[in-house]
Amino acid sequence: MPIIVNLDVMMAKRKISSNELADIVGITAANLSVLKTGKAKAIRFSTLDKICEALDCQPGDILEWQNPAEKT
C-alpha cells in the first residue's frame, strides 16, 4: 500500500513508549504494533484523533502517501 505510517518516528520525537501511547489512546499494544509495522488496513478517525492528541501532531505527521511509481 502506498500509505506509510510514520508513527514510530513521531513516537521517538515525543519520547513516548508503545505501551504508554497504547494506554493513552485506549488500544492494545498488539494493535499499536500492527499500526506501527504498517500491517493495518484502515484507521478509525477516533483512533487517529486520540493519537494526534497524545503526540500533539497532525495526521500528516503520522501518515504519508508515497507514489508507487516513484518507489522504484
Partner: peptide
C-alpha cells in the same frame, strides 16, 4: 473480515 480485523 481481514480488513475489519486490521482496522485500528
Amino acid at each position: 473480515k481481514s480488513e475489519n480485523d486490521f482496522t485500528i
